[in-house]
């Protein structure tokens, strides 16, 4: 599914990723943990194609295709989804409209029929209900006036509707209470099947109580310094990240 090979990236003169290598097979959920400044968010932005990051070496294959040359919208169409750490507010853009435009843009690129308003609303209402969100979520402007938890739920709503093959969750758990955390976990777990993979970027082990990963990787100093089973997260929680960079 996703193969990251020797990925180097920088912002301006600062080299942030210094040779990240990581493979996520179909159907698996991997977690990346690491201290602040390790390059976790940079990795998520490089994968999703945000401007401002220069890849200086390495490649990223998604279902065998090198995605580093693709525009963000084309990456989305191939099934990549980034749940933002700080979801962006879009005043004047209705949530339902946004979701439908997005879904139909992706369907169009995949050569599928667009959904009309009625079919879309049915789909969206079902997803809203499953995520225990109020129905007025669809009527509100995208993320405008949403609480931190609501914004993260809205990311999960988008994910549920766009049904990606690979979801990258960039610190989706930060600032969430336990109830919201469970909803996010449920959002990911409900998509779990042999065609869906996820990369969960997190600072804390807490979310991994609810989404049990197949593998945990530690990113420090721009490299993966350790990989192990789910129990590694618990170990890190106890011992902290100190000393890992040197490893």
């Amino acid at each position: 599914m996703l193969e990251i090979k020797n990925l180097h990236a920088r912002i301006g003169d600062a080299e942030i990723l210094k040779g990240v290598t990581l493979t996520i097979p179909d159907g698996e959920i991997h977690a990346i943990m690491g201290p602040n400044g390790a390059g976790k968010s940079t990795l998520s932005y490089v994968l999703s194609g945000r401007d401002g990051y220069e890849v200086t070496d390495g490649e990223v294959l998604f279902n065998g295709e090198n995605i580093l040359e693709m525009d963000p919208e084309d990456r989305a169409a191939t099934g990549l989804f980034l749940a933002f750490q700080y979801p962006v507010e879009l005043p004047g853009v209705g949530n339902a409209n946004f979701l439908r435009t997005s879904l139909n843009a992706i369907r169009r690129k995949r050569g599928e029929d667009e959904l009309d308003a009625v079919a879309f609303l049915k789909l969206a209402r079902g997803a809203v209900k499953q995520l225990a969100m109020k129905e007025d979520f669809l009527k509100r402007n995208v993320n405008v006036g949403f609480s931190g938890g609501e914004k993260k739920r809205n990311e999960m709503l988008q994910m549920a509707i766009l049904k990606p093959h690979l979801a990258i969750l960039d610190e989706t758990d930060s600032g969430l209470d336990i109830d919201a955390l469970k909803i996010v976990a449920e959002g990911v777990n409900s998509l779990r099947d042999e065609k869906f993979s996820a990369l969960i970027i997190t600072h804390y082990q807490r979310l991994l109580d609810y989404i049990v990963p197949d593998m945990v990787h530690v990113l420090a100093g721009g490299k993966i310094v350790r990989s192990g089973p789910a129990s590694l997260a618990l170990e890190l929680e106890a011992s902290g990240y100190a000393g890992l960079e040197a490893a």
Partner: peptide, 23 residues
């Protein structure tokens, strides 16, 4: 940031800009 957010959801860049101007 807004342009990127829309693009990351599959919306082509020109459409993303138009959506934001209309908004």
């Amino acid at each position: 940031e807004q342009v990127f957010y829309l693009r990351s959801r599959g919306i082509p860049e020109a459409d993303a800009r138009q959506i934001l101007i209309r908004a």
